[in-house]
Write a protein that binds this DNA or RNA. Structure first.
Length: 421
RNA sequence: GUGGAUAUAGCUCAGCUGGUUAGAGCGCCAGAUUGUGGCUCUGGAGGCCGUGGGUUCGAAUCCCACUAUUCACCCCA
């Protein structure tokens, strides 16, 4: 137990971390080019924030939150998603009083108590963005376009964008009423989960994979057909802007978001190659959330992307993440005197921006070379008594095997030249 | 919360229907090459065979329980 990471968590070892750094770098670059700024919020929040923000009836809140009491008896919850905390910060710091729209991105761990499976962990990492202050449909599309760009840059193929409009509180309650009416006398032939969905979230029934349920709902009314003028107008404009952006999409009237705050636009990017958890990115508009949490009425859009799932997608696309470079130079030492000289040299090299390392195990020359090879050093130099006395060392290019004599006091300039620094 | 699969060396796995010192490849360490890596060859270290119980003269192997991992459902990124 002591030497086992808790269920649903994973160490990112140094042999993997370069992939994360790569993804994070791409996110940051793309966000910067879209004018988004980073925001960092705490890993834990008051439980109430998620109850109110995500919705008391959602599965996330009802059975998946890491909730505990702190020493003063406050109920604290590890963030299960990224949006509510950003909205909280937006309200707390009265950011609505500044220039709009306001565009943020974040990279954060999230926590949900679930049974782990492929593409699903209890601690997972989410990359997301939020835009506050504009109800313009083009903003919805900008958000999707940012995701689209990331996939393009990463070289990910076979990801499909599905969009829907799930209405606003006004037309959705109207629609839910219609849907319940339609399902009322079919209730008995629906599967168990769908029966519980009937009250909680009847739209979800449309998405059921159970065949019996599917045949029952063939003629069910669809949200798209019951949108109010404002919502359906918004939906049409989103499609127009998607055309302008040149982003392929399909309308999927069955997309339903499991978080209560979504309004109007809901979208998903789906990959069919990473197992059952096919949603690689999900997002949408949430025009009512800021107000719900005590701020002024402020429209907003955003998305969240699971980084573990993105990594899976890359793997299954056969995309190799560029590896980090090896060491510039490794110093092989022979004897005590040389060891001290090498230690002094290391310091100098590093100060000059040349990454350098040496042996610390007093191993044979051969073993030191092997180790240098493992570190993927560009160069390896040998230093023993002779070299210290004469002030001349030989440096070996590890790719070509060529060796060259260099004066110790010229070493740094010579290396800088060779490395193109 | 529900269901299925799996658990043997650091990693990937073999070990047939129970039979005595548990194997391979890779990795690690060393030597062949006494101051030069990658290739090759040789040797070495490294296992409570997930944990506990049971059946048996005898269990890595069969049975049960537990734990962990994993996949799927629910739900979500």
């Amino acid at each position: 137990m002591l030497t086992k990471a808790p269920k649903g968590t994973k160490d990112v070892l140094s042999t993997e971390s370069f992939k994360w750094q790569y993804l994070e770098r791409i996110f940051r670059e793309v966000c910067e080019s879209f004018g988004y700024k980073e925001i960092r919020t705490p890993v834990f929040e008051h439980t109430e924030l998620f109850e109110r923000g995500v919705g008391e009836t959602t599965d996330v809140v009802q059975k998946e939150m890491y909730t505990f009491e702190d020493k003063a008896g406050r109920s604290i919850t590890l963030k299960p998603e990224g949006t509510a905390p950003v909205v909280r910060a937006f309200i707390e710091h009265k950011l609505y009083s500044g220039a709009m729209p306001l565009k943020f991105f974040y990279i954060t761990p999230c926590y949900r108590y679930e049974r782990p499976q492929a593409g699903r962990l209890r601690e997972f990492h989410q990359f997301g963005i939020e835009v506050f202050g504009s109800s313009h449909p083009a903003v919805d599309v900008e958000v999707m376009s940012l995701v689209y760009n990331i996939y393009k840059i990463l070289g990910v193929e076979g990801i499909e964008l599905s969009i829907n409009n799930i209405g606003c509180p006004k037309c959705r309650t109207e629609y839910n009423k219609k849907l319940r009416e339609f399902l009322k006398d079919k209730l008995d032939s629906l599967c168990e989960t769908c029966q519980s969905r009937y009250e909680k979230n009847p739209m979800r029934i449309l998405d059921c994979k159970n065949e019996r349920c599917q045949t029952e709902i063939i003629d069910a009314p669809l949200m798209v057909d019951y949108l109010c003028n404002e919502c359906s107008d918004h939906f049409e404009k989103v499609k127009e802007y998607l055309e302008i952006a040149g982003i392929e999409y399909k309308v999927d009237p069955k997309i339903v978001r499991g978080l209560d705050y979504y309004t109007k636009t809901a979208f998903e990017f789906i990959s069919n190659e990473i197992g059952s958890q096919s949603t690689v990115c999900g997002g949408g508009r949430y025009d009512g959330l800021v107000e719900e949490l005590g701020g002024p009425q402020t429209p907003a859009v955003g998305f969240g992307m699971g980084m573990e799932r993105l990594l899976l997608t890359l793997e299954n696309n056969g995309i190799e993440v560029p590896r980090e470079k090896g060491l510039d130079i490794f110093i092989v030492t022979i004897g005590d005197k040389a060891d001290k000289e090498a230690f002094r040299l290391l310091n100098n090299l590093r100060k000059n921006g040349i990454s350098a390392d040496k042996d610390y195990l007093e191993r044979s020359i051969k073993a030191q070379f092997k180790y240098s090879d493992k570190l993927e050093s560009e160069y390896t130099m040998v230093i023993g008594d002779d070299e210290v006395d004469k002030g001349i060392v030989s440096i070996k290019n590890m790719k070509t095997g060529e060796q060259q004599e260099v004066k110790l006091n010229n070493l740094i300039d010579e290396l800088k030249f060779k490395l193109g620094r």
